[in-house]
Amino acid sequence: MPITPFHFGPGAAIHAVAPRHVSFLAFCAANVLIDIEPLYYMLTGQYPLHRFFHTYIGASIIMLATALIFFAALKLASRFSLPDLLQWQSLSARAIWLGAGIGSCSHIVFDSVMHADITPLFPFSETNVLYQLVSLRKLHLFCVYSAILGLAILGIRQWIKARHAG
């Protein structure tokens, strides 16, 4: 299933550990952009589903595209009165780049473990040494536990902040 929320779990944990340095929004955006590729191939009945953008070279292009989209949106926000949901307008360039980069690369790692049709090192190699490195169950549990950990850390941070403010 493309655009799975499982990918977001590790992003939540990484963002929770370094909230000013890694954008969770850019992390998620990169993951969604990568999964437009298999969604398209699913809808058109073409196989394999995971192609160019599910390689590290393709993921690097997605990272660049994600960052450029964020920078363009920030430029528009400075000219027009765009809503600042989740404080995206205060993201630093570093947080955007790191979020997009970690999101893109982690997506390839996780999908490489899950899907036989991925060749992450293409055009240098057509092998996928990560395929079934761990079971699908363990991979999903890792993603879910990462999300829980990230939410717990963020919740504790908010609780501490509220206690010191009041």
Rank of each mutant, 00 (worst) to 15 (best):
P5G: 11
L133V: 04
D84L: 00
W159G: 05
P5I: 11
F53K: 00
Y145S: 10
L74Q: 13
V32M: 12
A67P: 02
A95D: 04
G11V: 08
S81F: 11
S112R: 07
S106Y: 15
Q46G: 00
F71M: 13
P19S: 02
M1D: 10
P2V: 00
F122M: 07
G150S: 09
F53N: 01
P19R: 04
A13M: 07
P5D: 08
R20F: 10
I36P: 04
A152N: 04
Y41V: 03
I108Q: 01
A30L: 08
A152I: 11
D35G: 05
I156Y: 15
A13P: 04
M63L: 15
P2L: 00
L49R: 13
G103V: 02
Y47G: 08
V113A: 02
F52W: 09
L43G: 10
A95M: 00
A29W: 13
L139Y: 10
F142V: 03
L82Y: 07
A29G: 10
A100V: 09
I118A: 06
L76I: 04
I102G: 11
S23W: 03
W97H: 04
A95S: 11
K75T: 12
H140K: 12
F70S: 06
H164V: 08
L121E: 06
L91R: 02
H54F: 05
G150D: 05
I62N: 08
L39G: 09
P2Q: 01
S146V: 03
V129K: 14
C143R: 00
R51G: 02
I3V: 12
Y41P: 03
L98C: 12
R20S: 14
Y47N: 15
D111E: 05
Y40M: 06
G58N: 08
S23I: 00
I153Y: 06
V144C: 06
I57S: 11
P10E: 10
Q158Y: 13
A152D: 02
A65W: 12
I3L: 13
S78L: 13
L76Q: 11
Q87P: 00
E37L: 06
A13C: 10
Q46F: 08
S81V: 07
P38H: 08
L151K: 02
A77Y: 08
Y145G: 02
R94N: 12
F24D: 01
V113R: 04
V17E: 10
P5C: 00
A147D: 00
Y131P: 00
S23A: 06
G155N: 05
S135L: 01
K161Y: 14
L141Y: 11
G58I: 06
S112F: 01
V134R: 06
F24T: 01
Q46D: 12
I153S: 09
G45E: 08
I62G: 07
A147Y: 09
M42S: 14
L82F: 10
Q158M: 11
I156A: 13
S146D: 01
I69A: 15
R137T: 12
F122H: 12
P10G: 04
G9D: 03
R51P: 05
E126T: 06
R79M: 12
L141N: 07
I96P: 10
G101A: 07
